[in-house]
């Protein structure tokens, strides 16, 4: 289970630029580290993040091993319509976690 934290304003004025923040609990293990006994710690990273606004991708990012654990993202959106925002993180094995928020445009 991965905890997800989102910060999305509940309402925005039409065409307002709003800041969105998203964080997910994930070790982002690089695969380059070794454990106490010298054994390789397997790579375990999120490779893709996407955020959809009314079904359409408006922000997307590819993650690589250089990204720190529990990745935190902040980005901006121009609020044009009342719609759902869907945040989805997908790891290297294809497992994914998602969370939604509703933005009401007045």
């Amino acid at each position: 289970m991965s905890t997800i934290r989102l910060s999305v304003p509940e309402t925005a004025k039409k065409n307002e630029i709003i800041e969105i923040k998203a964080m997910i609990q994930h070790p982002m293990e690089t695969g380059y580290r070794r454990g106490m006994r010298g054994e390789v710690i397997e790579r375990d990273i999120i490779t893709l993040f996407e955020c959809r606004y009314d079904g359409e991708i408006f922000f997307e990012g590819e993650f690589h091993p250089g990204i720190a654990a529990n990745p935190f993202l902040s980005f901006y959106l121009k609020a044009t319509k009342t719609a759902e925002l869907v945040f989805r993180w997908t790891d290297q094995t294809g497992q994914s976690w998602s969370e939604t928020a509703t933005l009401t445009v007045t």
Binding site: R5, K21, M23, F72
Partner: peptide, 11 residues
């Protein structure tokens, strides 16, 4: 919001 420890608090 940004304090990553809050992920555990929330859980």
């Amino acid at each position: 919001f940004e304090n990553p420890g809050l992920l555990w608090v929330e859980r």
